[in-house]
């Protein structure tokens, strides 16, 4: 039985084994390579996506766990890269190698959706599972704060 989920707004049916991690379905079956492999065991956050809006480690989520759900990857966070978090990430010039950044951005976006005014502790708690070997942490925190301000500005403008 194929498993059906909505990925970045598109309904996808997949015949892969139900225990196949979402990470590899995204990357190798659907060709959505923005979601990265770093550790495979939930320790690095490079594979973070949203499942029904919640930050989820795609390397640990079996395909069967997303049946009927909404999956959002970095490619689907915004149509044109203008999500407040994506804009803030560019404004703070966060990325070094950039490999961890899709995961960082997805974790940050999930945090801000839940908590529009996160404290520094909230930010650290939401991102503590996302490793960055290049050491961009100082800018990541600055970018989350900036994204919160941008998001607030947008909410006011609406």
């Amino acid at each position: 039985m194929p498993i059906t989920a909505t990925v970045n707004g598109v309904r996808q049916s997949c015949n892969a084994p139900p225990e196949m991690p979402l990470l590899w379905v995204l990357r190798d079956t659907l060709g959505l390579t923005g979601t990265k492999y770093g550790c495979g065991i939930g320790l690095c956050g490079a594979c973070t996506v949203h499942v029904d809006g919640a930050a989820t480690r795609a390397c640990l989520a079996p395909l069967s766990s997303v049946g009927g759900k909404q999956v959002t990857t970095i490619e689907g966070l915004s149509p044109d890269g203008t999500h407040p978090v994506q804009r803030a990430w560019q404004a703070e010039d966060v990325a070094q190698c950039g490999y961890c950044q899709p995961g960082q951005i997805m974790a940050a976006a999930a945090l801000l959706a839940k908590q529009p005014n996160p404290s520094d502790e909230d930010i650290a708690a939401a991102l503590v599972g996302n490793l960055c070997r290049c050491g961009t942490y100082q800018r990541i925190v600055a970018a989350v704060r900036r994204a919160a301000r941008l998001q607030k500005g947008e909410a006011l403008a609406r």
């Binding site: 979601t35 560019q90 899709p102």
Partner: peptide, 9 residues
Amino acid sequence: DNPAIVTGR
């Protein structure tokens, strides 16, 4: 590379 990185491209 910022635009490509933040969009996963």
